[in-house]
Design a protein around this nucleic acid. Structure first.
Lengths: 110, 110
DNA sequence: ACGTGATACAACCGTATGGTTGTATCAATG
DNA sequence: CATTGATACAACCATACGGTTGTATCACGT
């Protein structure tokens, strides 16, 4: 699965085509060729996008006859989510701290 | 605030230095120079990172005397989070559908 | 075993990105 | 108003990225 770190994950998500592939691969029904059919670019270009997503750990490929079905790996997405959640949590902490500051200054003000 | 779309947001988050800036800017206490002090690169380089984050709508700058304090914009982060949440929701839907399929096939199997 | 469908990979091209140094703007202070 | 501190911006360089075409691999059907 290569080295799926935050850098790779966010970089992989920073492209509309790749985000759409992730979306379609949630269903886990299409091979690379079918996916390529949806986009106005060459088969090789789509294959490269798939490779980027694979390197980031956001998808896997599973052989099915002569095709390779592309599947979204929810674990990878969850890693990104948890990072953003962390920011959110810290943000809330900040807001609370600010609220406390305001509250205490209001106390001393009166 | 330029054009903060998903491409820009994820691209901005795909760099460890920039993610760290976002983290520090949650506190909203440091100017560009203070931020630059934390990283092993030139002031100008950090300034560019800040510009990328600003273009993505992830931070704003607020003048405070001769400094400009860097502040994280939680709205931008939430946009990214909501997108990932959407994937998560679709994933759950997929799993439920699979469960139904299994259930119905079990019915027809017996 | 051969031909074909599906995927992979390499070489190449233009542009974007991340870093550098140097110069310019802008705001507070003496 | 001249100086200094803090930020901004331009020019430049090396490397990465997104796309192309062409060739190679690999698995199935006949």
């Amino acid at each position: 699965m290569a080295t799926p770190n935050a850098d790779h994950i966010f970089a992989a998500l920073a492209d509309a085509t790749r985000r759409d592939i992730v979306l379609r691969a949630l269903a886990g029904r299409e091979g690379v060729a079918e996916l390529a059919g949806h986009y106005p670019m060459s088969f090789a270009a789509v294959q490269k996008h798939v490779a980027v997503l694979e390197r980031a750990g956001l998808i896997t490929k599973e052989r099915s006859g002569r095709r390779k079905v592309v599947l979204t790996n929810i674990e990878g997405l969850n890693l990104a989510r948890s990072l953003l959640d962390q920011y959110e949590t810290l943000w809330r902490g900040r807001v609370e701290r600010m609220t406390h500051l305001i509250a205490s200054s209001e106390e001393t003000d009166r």
